[in-house]
């Protein structure tokens, strides 16, 4: 078998793997009602530490410019499991991973206002 073909196949496989891992999670977006509940929770309850305008307080700011550099998976994990040694609790009793991912995506683009 030709060596260069093998390399081509390997590179292609690698690219495919990359493409798959970079693709957005396949989980469905929360229903519109649930989205409103999540927006309310983030603005009001997360807001008690991060500020209602998410500009920070006891917790850091959650504005797009600050979150841009941080990987989605790390942010989702922080929301769900908290950060030991800080005041950030895990919120996995109140939302699942798809919902936390939805919140992270909204935070990175500028979080919706309260209805």
């Amino acid at each position: 078998m030709d060596r260069s073909l093998l390399i081509h196949v390997a590179v292609l496989l690698g690219l495919t793997a990359l493409a798959v891992s970079a693709a957005p999670a396949a989980e469905p977006a929360p229903t519109p009602e649930r989205q409103q509940t999540l927006v309310h929770m983030v603005r009001q309850d997360c807001g008690s530490c991060h500020g209602m305008r998410l500009a920070g307080g006891l917790g850091p700011a959650l504005l797009p410019e600050r979150l841009a550099e941080l990987p989605d998976e790390a942010l989702v994990a922080t929301i769900l499991n908290g950060r030991p040694g800080t005041a950030m609790p895990g919120w996995n009793r109140f939302m699942d991973e798809a919902e936390a991912s939805w919140i992270v995506a909204r935070l990175k683009e500028g979080f919706p206002s309260l209805q």
Partner: peptide, 12 residues
Amino acid sequence: GRGEEKLPVFKM
């Protein structure tokens, strides 16, 4: 809180 697990704190 000795001997009890501390619960997550959702508001200070």
